[in-house]
Amino acid sequence: MSATDPNKSSPTSDQVLIARQVNKTFFSTSGDKVEALRAVDLSVGRGEFVVLIGPTGCGKTTLLNILGGLDSPDGGEIRFAPGFRREDGLAYVFQHYTLFPWRKLLANVAFGLQMRGVPRRRRNARARDLLQRVGLADFERAYPHELSGGMRQRVALAQALAVEPSVLLMDEPFGALDDATRKDLQQLLIDLWQTTSMSVLFVTHNIDEAVILASRICVLSGRPGRVVQDIPVSLPRPRDHLAQPFTDRLLIVRQALYSDT
């Protein structure tokens, strides 16, 4: 395969992550072949906020898991910027089970640093600082089950940021939240993203959420998932979701989503 050509597949200096021609096929329990991804090309720039949007079951999560190294592709390749290592460059926020129920919040946030051998005092100081930044300074001794869903995702965000990732993968992290909480968390995420140089790759099936957050939107087709359109969103922040340019973008994304199916 020509994908090994270094000139074509190596990320340029402003790209942290490139996926080329990624394929993935599953076999269901009844033995049926399910093609989840077909020849997916995707790149994430340094400091970019990329939103992956697509219909349910289009392989968004599969793609994210492959990029995160939790799953392996059947074909194609994943490339990272030079010097980037998955083990310490990536963080992942899941939709569910994002925290360890047996750890108090402080220990949850400090988990990644503990795995990296950071001494207790330093990692706790850093975790405290992050809990404060997500607005949960008073809850460091609470257990996850004592929190609401929105608060848990705040902690999950702090937990992921603690390891200072260059790329943050997020799989519908706000999908299970009510509207008001979701809006709060979107704002918090944007604030945190703007204070760091990290890139975010964010999966959602909510068009409004995509346009609120993204600096670029990748639209995936229905199964098998392919990237059908790349839509840059250069609207100034904070974004007014009632203004004309915003609603124009919504329409473009909606058209891209529905023209395919």
Binding site: L70, Y92, H96, L99, F100
Partner: peptide
């Protein structure tokens, strides 16, 4: 739950950890 293992892995935990 596999999710806890995935989460730990993504946060840099090796097999022993």
């Amino acid at each position: 739950r596999r999710n806890y293992l995935s989460l730990a892995r993504m946060l840099g935990a090796g097999p022993w950890q």
